[in-house]
C-alpha cells in the first residue's frame, strides 16, 4: 500500500520525506522538558532599562526582559489605553477600549500631522495610485457611489429642512 503511494507520487519532489511513522503529532506543540514546574523561576536575561512608559498585562507580575519602545501611550488615546490595562486579557474591558483608543489615535495622528505643518495625502496613503493603475473601473465606481450617496444625503437633508419650514 505505502509502496503504491510512493509510486503514485513519484512526480512530487520530496513526497513523504517527513512522514515519520513514529511521528508524535503533539511534538510541534511541546518538547516537554519539565521546566514548566519551575514556573517563572528561570534564569532571567538582563532587564532592558525602562526609558518610556510601557503598559503591561495584569496577567504578569512585571515587565519582560525586553520590550518595544515604539510609540508610547500619549494624549487621549494613551489615557484610554491606560484604562484598558486595568483589565485582563480575558476581559472585554481590556480589548474594546484598546480598539476605541486605536480609532481616537487616528484622529490624533491627523492633528499631529497638521500641527507639524504636514497635510496628510490621504489618497496616496490609501494607495490610490496603485488602484488607479490596476483597478481603474473600481476607483471610478467607488467615486460614483460616494458622490451619489453624498448627493442623496444632501437632498434628504434639504427636503427635511424644507418640510420643517
Amino acid at each position: 500500500m505505502i509502496m503504491d503511494l510512493e509510486k503514485k507520487f513519484a512526480h512530487i519532489k520530496g513526497w513523504g520525506v517527513d512522514a515519520d511513522p513514529k511521528n508524535e503529532p503533539t511534538y510541534p506543540m511541546k518538547k516537554y522538558t519539565g521546566d514548566d514546574h519551575q514556573r517563572l523561576n528561570w534564569e532571567r536575561p538582563e532587564e532592558q532599562p525602562v526609558t518610556v512608559e510601557i503598559l503591561h498585562s495584569n496577567e504578569r507580575p512585571g515587565l519582560p526582559a525586553v520590550f518595544g519602545t515604539s510609540t508610547p501611550p500619549s494624549g487621549l488615546s494613551g489615557n484610554i489605553r491606560r484604562f484598558a490595562f486595568k483589565y485582563s486579557e480575558s476581559s472585554y474591558g481590556h480589548w474594546l477600549p484598546l480598539l476605541l483608543a486605536d480609532r481616537v489615535n487616528v484622529v490624533e495622528g491627523i492633528i499631529d500631522d497638521l500641527r507639524k505643518g504636514h497635510v496628510p495625502n490621504i489618497f496616496a496613503e490609501k494607495g490610490y495610485k496603485a488602484a488607479w493603475t490596476h483597478n481603474r473601473a473600481g476607483v471610478i465606481k467607488k467615486v460614483a457611489i460616494t458622490a451619489l450617496a453624498t448627493t442623496a444625503l444632501i437632498l434628504l437633508w434639504k427636503s427635511g429642512k424644507a418640510k420643517k419650514r
Partner: peptide
Amino acid sequence: ESNPEATAVGG
C-alpha cells in the same frame, strides 16, 4: 520574556 502587553503571545 519579550512581550509586556499580552501573555497569550510572544513578541
